[in-house]
Amino acid sequence: MTTIHLYLASTMHQATPITATTPAAWVVILRYADHQKALNDAGYGHTETQLTLSALIEALTTLKRHDLPVHVHTTTEIVATIISEQRYLTWRQNDWQLPDDEQDNLTQWQQLVPLIEAYPDLQVTYHPVDDPTMTTATTTLTAVMTKL
């Protein structure tokens, strides 16, 4: 059975305080068999986590088949960890009580969880930005950022 691969890259602002004028973007490269499609969006004032969640919501919404395995590759470690460890299950059980550092993303997590659950064979892997696996996504992200 062929796996759908989603390669997500988003702007990282670790050393920069984010303001309403801070440029930000995300890119998803969808690959299935010999088909490839790119999705992206850009704007201002978004955190890396917000961007990655937006990208994942858009990508999973775009997919038409729920019967195939989906492998998400992301450069955002916290999102990969939360999904892999299924922390969102506890959040939902506790009436969406998220840690303070994730409160800004509550609406996105609430949107994403049903999408994740629609794919019974979903796997998430974190990759550093310089990992060759992520080259197409990070190169595309750079191109999107130059248009801001």
Rank of each mutant, 00 (worst) to 15 (best):
T74F: 04
P114V: 09
T139W: 06
H73T: 04
T76Q: 06
V72H: 06
V72L: 11
P99I: 12
W96P: 04
T62Y: 10
V27S: 00
H66A: 15
N40V: 01
T90R: 08
I78Q: 06
L89F: 11
E102Y: 14
Q103H: 13
L6Q: 04
V72T: 11
P99Y: 09
A137C: 05
T11H: 00
T142C: 09
L30Y: 06
T135V: 11
V70P: 07
R92I: 10
E77R: 06
H35D: 11
I116E: 10
L53Q: 05
L39Q: 01
G45N: 08
V129T: 13
N105F: 10
Y7P: 00
K64N: 09
V79N: 03
T62L: 07
I18G: 04
E85T: 14
L53N: 02
L56K: 00
Q50M: 12
W26M: 00
E77L: 05
H35R: 14
Q111A: 04
Q93P: 05
A118N: 12
Q110T: 13
T107M: 13
Y88N: 09
I4W: 03
Q123S: 15
K64G: 09
T19I: 08
P128H: 14
D130E: 15
L39Y: 03
L8W: 00
T107S: 13
R65T: 12
L60N: 03
K147L: 12
P99A: 08
V113A: 10
S54C: 02
A25I: 00
T61Q: 11
L115I: 12
T52F: 01
Y44C: 15
V70A: 10
K37F: 06
A80W: 01
V129P: 03
T76Y: 04
H35Q: 13
V113E: 11
Y88H: 15
T140C: 06
N94R: 12
M12V: 02
W26P: 00
L115Y: 04
T21S: 12
V113L: 13
I18T: 10
T22R: 10
P128Y: 08
L112Y: 08
T76D: 03
L115G: 03
T52E: 02
T76F: 06
Y7N: 01
L112E: 05
A33L: 06
L6C: 02
V124E: 01
L89E: 14
P99F: 11
V72F: 08
H73F: 07
T49A: 06
S84F: 10
Y32D: 10
T61D: 12
D130K: 15
Q14F: 07
D104Y: 14
D95V: 11
L63M: 04
Q123P: 12
R92F: 11
A15V: 03
V124H: 02
Q50D: 03
T107R: 15
T135C: 05
V70I: 14
A15H: 11
A38K: 03
L115K: 10
Y32K: 09
T52N: 06
P114H: 13
L60A: 12
L106T: 09
V28P: 00
W96I: 14
D95K: 15
T22M: 10
T16W: 05
H73E: 08
T139G: 05
L98P: 02
L89Q: 15
D41P: 01
W91M: 09
I18S: 07
R92Y: 14
M134S: 01
Y44S: 15
T81I: 13
A137G: 04
H73D: 06
R92T: 09
D41Q: 05
